[in-house]
């Protein structure tokens, strides 16, 4: 986690967030909430999401970069301070392609089996495998799992709650996340998601 010397109106050093998931998991909404929350918190922010072919069950990513001196919206390999994954395999992929040693990983521990596992050409990885990789690289891992969620699309909000509770993004506070959610959700969806967000993330 970033320490207080970076606190000020703007971060001096860029803070890079790399979101990764499978097409169909709704990563776009989560990245949009983070983007708007970062803006409410006074950060300058750039972002980019995957659109197109990969949205059909392939790997989808969103990049978010906070800070004064950020140019491209794309996070460089090995430079993500925070990797957010919506699936176990994608957590491993995020660690491999984006995570910085000493950074953080939050992931929702569901599995959407890749083709090779379904065809019995490869074995399934476990949460312990991910923990091992994180431990070796000084990356703090946060595992999120809610067996009782009514709607799978709310897994994103459970992840968001963990990010907030552990203050994983500098300067973004509860009210900023909530403002962003209010911008993007309405009616009962907003209510349910706010409840989950405030709950035991």
């Amino acid at each position: 986690m970033l320490k207080s010397e970076t606190i000020g109106k703007y971060l001096m050093k860029p803070f890079n967030i790399y979101l990764i998931g499978v097409g169909g998991q709704g990563i776009g909404l989560l990245s949009e909430i983070l983007l708007r929350a970062a803006d409410y918190a006074g950060h300058r922010v750039k972002a980019v999401d995957t659109h197109g072919l990969a949205q059909r069950g392939g790997v989808v990513v969103s990049h978010l970069r906070l800070g004064d001196r950020v140019f491209s919206p794309l996070v460089q390999g090995g430079e993500a301070d925070l990797v957010i994954a919506l699936e176990r395999y994608e957590a491993l992929r995020g660690l491999k392609v984006a995570a910085r040693d000493g950074g953080a990983l939050v992931y929702y521990d569901t599995v959407w089996q890749p083709l090779d596992v379904r065809l019995n050409r490869a074995a399934e990885i476990q949460a312990a495998d991910i923990h091992r990789v994180c431990a070796a690289r000084g990356i703090k891992d946060y595992v999120v799992f809610h067996p009782a969620l009514e709607d799978t699309r709310m897994q994103n909000t459970a992840v968001l709650s963990t990010i907030h509770k552990n203050e994983l993004i500098p300067e973004i506070q509860e009210k900023h996340y909530k403002n962003a959610m209010e911008d993007l959700l309405q009616g009962s969806a907003l209510k349910q998601n706010l409840k989950l967000f405030e709950g035991n993330g």
């Binding site: 392939g58 390999g77 395999y89 992929r93 083709l115 090779d116 990789v133």
Partner: peptide, 20 residues
Amino acid sequence: ARHPAAVLPEVVLARPPQMC
């Protein structure tokens, strides 16, 4: 040259796009 962290040894299974 680039930071070696960008080329790590873990093998992650490919996930090509697929029909829904």
